[in-house]
């Protein structure tokens, strides 16, 4: 089974008051030196079957029409490397 990650972020020109609220809280919590925070969404998709070009194209379509609103958001689709399965003896 393959994992595909879709990251969705507000476009740079869109005001992100939630990210700003997080950024303003940081100095109070002792975390200095962070000048900006942008908050986004991450979707982890477990894909049945082979992750071929057609499957990736469908995921791209899903991200573009549903997971992200491209009026205000950008998205990136990434295929995650399968984790090596460790067998303890």
């Amino acid at each position: 089974m393959a994992r595909v990650v879709v990251d969705v972020m507000l476009k740079p020109e869109i005001l992100d008051p939630q990210g700003q609220a997080v950024q303003r809280a940081l100095p109070r919590l002792g975390f200095e030196g962070i000048s900006d925070v942008r908050q986004g969404k991450r979707f982890e998709l477990e894909v049945d079957g082979p992750l071929d070009e057609a499957a990736l194209a469908r995921i791209h379509e899903m991200a573009e029409t549903f997971l992200a609103n491209t009026v205000i958001e950008d998205f990136v689709v990434k295929v995650e490397e399968a984790e090596a399965v460790k067998v303890e003896s």
Partner: peptide, 17 residues
């Protein structure tokens, strides 16, 4: 309606949250 693209633009969280 904006999500349906029947109207342009989008709605976001109030600026004061």
């Amino acid at each position: 309606l904006t999500e349906s693209h029947l109207l342009p633009g989008a709605m976001l969280r109030n600026n004061h949250l």
